[in-house]
Design a protein around this nucleic acid. Structure first.
Lengths: 182, 182
DNA sequence: ACATAGCGTTTGTCAAGGCGAACAACGGAC
DNA sequence: GTCCGTTGTTCGCCTTGACAAACGCTATGT
């Protein structure tokens, strides 16, 4: 998909949602309405400052150029979900949400048992991992700088290097939010 | 902060991280290296297609123009973190990670006590909420369709409508991942 | 020492973005 | 009906982004 097409749709959508006319938005953003007109028509190749001005005027995040999938509800009960067997280990990982194709984030629930160690290879460059400990204690983080975590602890670290998950207590439950680059 | 400044920094950072020379990146992206040079110098006002090409060549998310804090480790111990007082209620919410301006997601830890109800107004259109229950029981979700959750339950629902957080058990701890539209 | 190759910078040219004004289309006031 | 305000479009003009080429610079090899 070409960028300008996405922008055209997004701009039309956001502007109508904001209830602004072309002229009004143009004045707000400090742009010429002709510019906006062309952009909504899917023509041209706007500069960032132009887009920045539009985004600011509409008070939307800059990433509004991408389409948003219609939201839906999803409920995964404690026992449910499709477990993922990682490399034959008996680590129980459940994929709670592999975000819509657009949003690059996955949510997992990990169940670790005593002494078990999960060695994770480096993920794609730029990947970020967010770990939240629900119960138990675990050693988590980059292989060269892991942290010992207890219930309620939150730890964020780059996932694009080798890292480990290791239960210290008898068992540990933790939530993992993986954030991919695009 | 002006957009071009952010881009300059981000470009420098990402390119060096990728280990690419200006010339190499230029060829990859199908751009002139002079263009890249100027951008890294913080000059100019690139068009989207240019940025799009750069992002594709670097294989990074388009939102790399913001921010950005080079990936760093962050550890928030159970007791720590700056609590957020929501509208005078005694709900304890801790902002664990307010993602860099580019990546639209925030991570919170909520501590609810019995009977307490948190009414949340509608967030920006397209917002998504991911809730993970660490302990206790709570009623969570859109005001017209809440779900009763127990430990380990995961619930995802649109955050762009009024919704509630209500503890059922004596106390409940849950993690909230808010995902903003892009 | 010289030459070579790569790096990132600066320069000049050309195409294209952004602007303002003029434009037609629509609706409400009177 | 005519006027007025607003809508979004299309039209030259000027500025500027993007390009290619030439530039200086630093290693590296012979």
């Amino acid at each position: 998909m070409t960028p300008i097409t996405l922008i055209a749709r997004a701009l039309k959508r956001e502007r109508s949602k904001a209830g602004l006319s072309l002229s009004a938005l143009a004045e707000r953003a400090g742009l010429a309405k002709s510019t906006l007109s062309q952009l909504e028509a899917g023509q041209g190749n706007p500069s960032i400052e132009t887009l920045w001005a539009i985004a600011s005027a509409l008070d939307v995040p800059f990433g509004f150029l991408f389409d948003t999938a219609p939201p839906e509800l999803t409920l995964v009960r404690a026992g449910e979900g499709t477990p993922i067997s990682s490399e034959g280990t008996d680590l129980k990982a459940v994929l709670l949400s592999n975000g819509p194709p657009g949003s690059r984030r996955d949510l997992y629930r990990f169940d670790l048992v005593a002494g078990m160690t999960r060695d994770a290879a480096a993920h794609p460059q730029g990947t970020m991992e967010h770990v939240l400990v629900a119960s138990g204690r675990a050693r988590v983080g980059p292989k060269d700088a892991p942290e010992e975590l207890g219930p309620g602890d939150y730890f964020r670290f780059p996932g694009d290097v080798a890292h480990i998950y290791e239960a210290i207590s008898a068992e540990a439950v933790l939530f993992l939010a993986m954030e991919f680059p695009r």
